[in-house]
């Protein structure tokens, strides 16, 4: 294949990665930004969303589009509910202590993995795509569903942006993020905000997972990579910056794919990884963020 189309393919693949990554990272960014909780279980929420999608589509059967649509509604709600429960039972009692919550979310991660392993099993299982058509470009064919994922992610991201910037909920969240005590003094129920934010963060991960699962299959250990990449995206993008999260997701999604055009894939991964590190070394606050402190 000629270089041009090759690059085009790498870019398209990078966009799909970036779209899903942006959703997942946004969930993490909300939790991290508003609650100051390093949620190690975020990848596990992603995994629960994917595994949930498998159960829903199995249960509905045909047509696959119906099952998928239901999964897209049910899974984020269910995962969000689980997250709110975990928040109330554990994180709140820890008073959101940054160090204790790391241990606690590692504990949650183990619990969710065992739940998936016991109830769902160790296999990677496919979920049928709601539709399948192939877009035939002059040089290669491409999955139409993947293009739809990019679109769907964009819609969800736009929705979140509206909520955060144009609604009272967003205002309350931002107020809590900036100054928790002050928000409380103004009559904001911080407990409810935290529960909502934690649920929303997990729900966003679940949305991303449901979108990706027809491409990638559900597996009980699938949460590791999304967790790592989301962290990187959140920090590179700068905390509390939706725009930064988006740009960083694009940067991470595309760099990996495009660099692998020039180098052997593993070497490309190494270079991309070091590039990310160097970006932070020379711009520690991230690309768009304010100065971040622990």
């Amino acid at each position: 294949m000629a270089f041009g189309p090759f690059l085009l393919l790498a870019l398209m693949e990078g966009l799909v990665t970036a779209a899903v990554l942006a959703l997942t990272a946004l969930g993490l960014s909300l939790v991290f930004g508003v609650m100051r909780v390093v949620n190690v279980a975020h990848g596990a929420f992603f995994m629960l969303g994917a595994v949930g999608a498998w159960f829903v589509t199995e249960w509905v059967g045909n047509p696959p589009a119906l099952g998928f649509a239901l999964a897209l509604v049910i899974c984020p709600l269910a995962v969000g509910a689980i997250a709110a429960l975990a928040n109330g039972l554990v994180l709140k009692r820890l008073n959101y202590d940054p160090e204790a919550t790391i241990v606690a979310t590692i504990g949650l991660l183990y619990i969710f993995q065992q739940m998936a392993l016991t109830l769902y099993g160790p296999d990677a299982r496919p979920v049928p795509a709601p539709f399948s058509f192939r877009v035939q470009l002059p040089w290669f064919g491409y999955s139409g569903y993947k293009l739809a994922v990019i679109g769907a992610a964009a819609v969800v991201l736009a929705g979140v942006w509206l909520v955060l910037n144009r609604s009272k909920i967003g205002l309350v969240m931002r107020a809590t993020q900036i100054d928790r005590e002050m928000a409380q003094a103004f009559g904001i129920n911080v407990d409810r905000v935290y529960a909502g934010v934690f649920a929303m963060g997990a729900g966003l991960a679940a949305v991303a997972a449901v979108l990706i699962v027809p491409i990638q299959q559900a597996h009980y250990l699938m949460g590791g990579d999304p967790l790592l990449l989301s962290f990187i995206v959140v920090i590179i993008g700068g905390l509390g910056s939706l725009r930064g999260t988006l740009v960083a997701a694009l940067l991470i999604g595309l760099s990996d794919g495009v660099i692998s055009v020039f180098f052997s894939p593993t070497l490309a991964k190494i270079i991309a990884t070091l590039l990310v590190a160097l970006v932070l070394v020379f711009r520690p606050q991230g690309l768009f963020g304010r100065q971040v402190t622990r």
Partner: peptide, 15 residues
């Protein structure tokens, strides 16, 4: 890595 602090330090060391 020590040019960074806090969460950035986390990510740089991770990378």
């Amino acid at each position: 890595a020590l040019r960074t602090a806090g969460v950035s330090f986390m990510i740089v060391t991770l990378m």
